[in-house]
Nucleic acid binder design. Structure first.
Lengths: 125, 125
DNA sequence: AGTAAGCATTACTGTATGGTAATGCATCGG
DNA sequence: CCGATGCATTACCATACAGTAATGCTTACT
């Protein structure tokens, strides 16, 4: 019952897992050893566990080459889970940036309502 | 030392908090009571705790009106933390969508290398 | 004044999970 | 063949944290 998106966000919550994904996104496929080298404070079995959970969520895939495992980013699941969710916020972000720019430029242009004009909810007694 | 982004992803990991943010994004400002009504399985003090942590991360802000607290989405922090991070993946997403479309259209156009052409790393023995 | 509504705070509990150490299992080099 | 490398798996531990119940503080109503 726990949705795909729930699982994704739980996985992304851990900084180590996010960094693994970031490395794979920036550098392309990497072996476990190469990945582990980026986390000197962690033992390799820890990395392995993270990689297993990433594989379990289909965020990465692995192919063997001899005794090495080459991990690779698998972007589809993340895109599918994240894009619709992001859509709810992106419109706020543009206005947020505009607002920041406005603040930087001048003070006192308090023309209201950047947020969705949402007529429902009038509960002022 | 734990970065802004770490904090954000930890917060987003909880489905209740994500739903709170979603509601505020979709419906505009809401009171605690209105929010709590969306979570029948939770007691209100639980909602309140979540709202406190959201406020602590500056993802929402609250204004009093009488004895009600009206919570409102505060998009800036989220945008600032998420947009640079998303940039690493978005280019994969377009190709991912293209790949999905390709798969839907036909089978066997296995022209390789959608991923970043990353010349470094040549370790084929 | 007294009661209730709306929300925050605190203390407590159970569970999930990140980390480690130990072990196992292929694969590679000599 | 034998030790070493590369990685996965297991069992174990400690901590973080979501949820609840209890309490308190304002504001509103009568």
């Amino acid at each position: 019952m726990t949705s795909d998106r729930d699982a994704l966000f739980r996985i992304l919550a851990d900084p180590t897992r996010r960094k693994i994904l970031d490395l794979l996104a920036e550098q392309g496929p990497l072996t476990v050893g190469e990945l582990a080298a980026e986390f000197p404070q962690l033992v390799t079995s820890g990395i392995s566990k993270h990689l297993m959970s990433l594989r379990g969520a289909s965020l990465v895939s692995a192919t063997r080459r001899g005794r090495e495992q080459i991990y690779q980013l698998e972007p589809d699941v993340m895109a599918a889970a994240l894009k619709p969710w992001l859509a709810k916020y992106e419109r706020y972000w543009s206005t947020a940036l505009a607002r920041l720019r406005d603040l930087a430029e001048e003070r006192g242009t308090e023309a209201g309502q950047t947020s969705p004009r949402n007529a429902r909810r009038r509960r002022r007694k």
